[in-house]
């Protein structure tokens, strides 16, 4: 992406940002309001920049937002916002239907995929009866079913216990897809190659997580002491 600016409600959220995101595991950190969520939403056209251009795997997002959305799989914070269909197989199959498979094929592939991930008897279970961790897994599977090139995760798993979170993170590790993840918990970035620290819509630090994470942690701790209620 080059020279990207995003304005929302009259003020600049992202300011003249230029980045090349080549690594296969990229972490994005920053305090609340730093522009993380806005940044990743420019990758698939959910938010259009007011200036500059975003190119994802050769696709100009501004010119072909649909193709970009196809290439970028998005996992949101709250699975209840993402899961559209009442049963597991229907939701996974929806992604496949979206990319052109017939109803019957999509159902078959969805069931096969559930089996592959060890969720054999989930196909006809109502989403409302799943645990939070199970819902997150359904979200990931539904997105993976569409075979995106990039997987963007916006603060996933924040409502999960440590065991479930570790299990899901290790499932993510083995994926072939490029992963760009926003998270507040720095422990989740085990094995990541690059960490980008956003502050006020610009890159404050960028490099190996081993270098960036300590700086960010220190900054966050300093901020914590000085926060007045109005800044919380």
């Amino acid at each position: 992406m080059s020279d990207v600016t995003v304005e929302r409600g009259g003020h600049v959220v992202i300011a003249n940002l230029s980045l090349i995101l080549d690594e296969s595991r990229i972490a994005i950190v920053g305090l609340n309001g730093s522009g993380k969520s806005t940044l990743v939403r420019t990758f698939n056209g959910l938010i259009s920049p007011s200036g500059g251009e975003v190119v994802v795997h050769g696709i100009d997002v501004g010119k072909a937002p649909k193709a970009a959305a196809r290439a970028v799989g998005f996992v949101f914070q709250n699975p209840d916002h993402q899961i559209i269909f009442p049963t597991v197989a229907e939701d996974v199959a929806f992604g496949l239907r979206q990319i052109g498979y017939s109803k019957a094929d999509a159902r078959g592939m969805a069931v096969a995929m559930l089996r592959e991930y060890g969720c054999d008897d989930w196909a006809d279970r109502p989403i409302s009866e799943l645990s939070e961790g199970q819902k997150h897994l359904v979200c990931i599977l539904s997105v993976l079913a569409m075979e995106p090139e990039v997987l963007v995760l916006d603060e996933p798993f924040s409502s999960l216990d440590i065991a479930v979170r570790q299990n899901l993170l290790s499932r993510l590790k083995s994926l072939r897809q490029q992963i760009i993840m926003i998270n507040h918990d720095l422990d989740a970035f085990d094995g990541f190659e690059r960490m980008i620290w956003l502050k006020d819509g610009t890159v404050h630090a960028d490099g190996a997580p081993s270098a960036v994470a300590p700086l960010y942690r220190l900054h966050a701790m300093q901020m914590a002491e000085n926060l007045a209620p109005k800044n919380l």
């Binding site: 559209i84 979206q98 990319i99 052109g100």
Partner: peptide, 16 residues
């Protein structure tokens, strides 16, 4: 939020 998530998955018309 749901509208946003639906758009991220190709919207009502899909990618076909």
């Amino acid at each position: 939020h749901v509208s946003e998530a639906l758009a991220a998955r190709g919207g009502a018309d899909g990618f076909e």
